[in-house]
Amino acid sequence: MEAFLISTGLVALAEMGDKTQLLALLLAAKFRKPVPIIFAILFSTIVNHALAALVGQWLTGLVSPDVMQWILAISFIAMGVWMLIPDKLDDESESVNRWQKYGVFATTFILFFLAEMGDKTQIATVALSARFDSLIPVVMGTTAGMMIANAPAVIIGDKMANRLPISLIHKIAAAIFFILGLAIIVESYIH
């Protein structure tokens, strides 16, 4: 349960103001069909984060537990730093126009999957999966976190998103990543 809850909370916070949340807003404004957009985000996230969690599991078998602890500690601290750098939507409207011929669901699925590649939340999923060595709860948690952040963005659009204290949310997420990284370091010295 710990893996699920931490994964959900971290990803929900990390996703606030992230480029995929901005993409969700763009898709909602472009298509004005929230149901297929939300389902496409859900399925895209499940596939993307399942692959990321598998990489995390694979990494735990590749290196010794001592080395993995240091990799995870550094990864979480680096994620904390990365959270303090605001994301921008790199002219995704061109991509939307290029893919829209495939329909709302396919366009959203493809663009969301591609935008999530190498994104903060995908890398966090790799690290969380390696940290907790628990594939299903981590994927369920990170997917829930993505939906907590993105479904409302699709439904209420940018009117409400502009009112959220994104900078504060990013600072809280960064602090949590820092704490996780430091906790791993402290834990390695205790054992």
Rank of each mutant, 00 (worst) to 15 (best):
T8L: 15
L13R: 06
F112G: 06
S93H: 13
H49W: 01
N162D: 14
S93V: 13
R163G: 05
L111T: 03
T143Q: 04
I148Y: 01
T125K: 00
I46V: 15
T8D: 06
F132W: 03
T142I: 07
A78T: 12
D119H: 10
E15K: 05
V139H: 04
V96N: 00
D133Q: 12
D18A: 15
L26N: 08
I37M: 01
F39S: 11
F39P: 05
L22C: 00
S188G: 10
K19D: 01
A28R: 08
I71V: 14
V96T: 00
M140R: 07
I166M: 10
Y189W: 13
K19N: 01
D87L: 06
V35S: 10
T45E: 09
I190Q: 11
A173E: 08
L10A: 02
L10S: 01
G80F: 06
N48R: 03
A153N: 03
V63G: 08
I176Q: 01
T107M: 05
L51V: 14
G9M: 13
W99P: 01
I85H: 11
T60A: 11
L26Y: 03
S167D: 15
V139I: 12
P65M: 05
M83A: 14
S93P: 05
Q122M: 10
S7L: 03
P36A: 05
H49P: 07
W70P: 06
A127R: 04
M83E: 14
T143V: 14
I156W: 15
T20Q: 13
M117W: 12
L27K: 10
S44E: 09
V186P: 03
F43N: 13
M140S: 12
G9C: 13
L51C: 09
L5S: 11
W99G: 02
I185A: 15
A78R: 00
A115T: 14
T142E: 07
M117K: 02
D119L: 10
M68G: 05
Q21P: 08
K33C: 04
V55K: 07
D90M: 08
F177S: 00
D133H: 10
E116M: 05
T60Q: 08
F132C: 03
M83S: 14
D158E: 15
I179S: 05
A29P: 05
P36S: 01
A12Q: 04
K101A: 12
N162W: 12
S167P: 08
P36T: 03
A183Y: 15
E92D: 11
V96D: 07
G56D: 00
A183T: 14
F178Y: 13
K171E: 13
I155E: 03
Y102V: 07
K159S: 13
P152R: 12
A50T: 13
I46N: 08
T143N: 01
M83D: 14
I6C: 09
V81I: 15
V63D: 08
Y189L: 15
R98S: 12
N97F: 09
A127C: 09
M160I: 14
N150T: 13
T45D: 12
A151Q: 01
S93Y: 11
A175N: 04
F132R: 02
E2A: 11
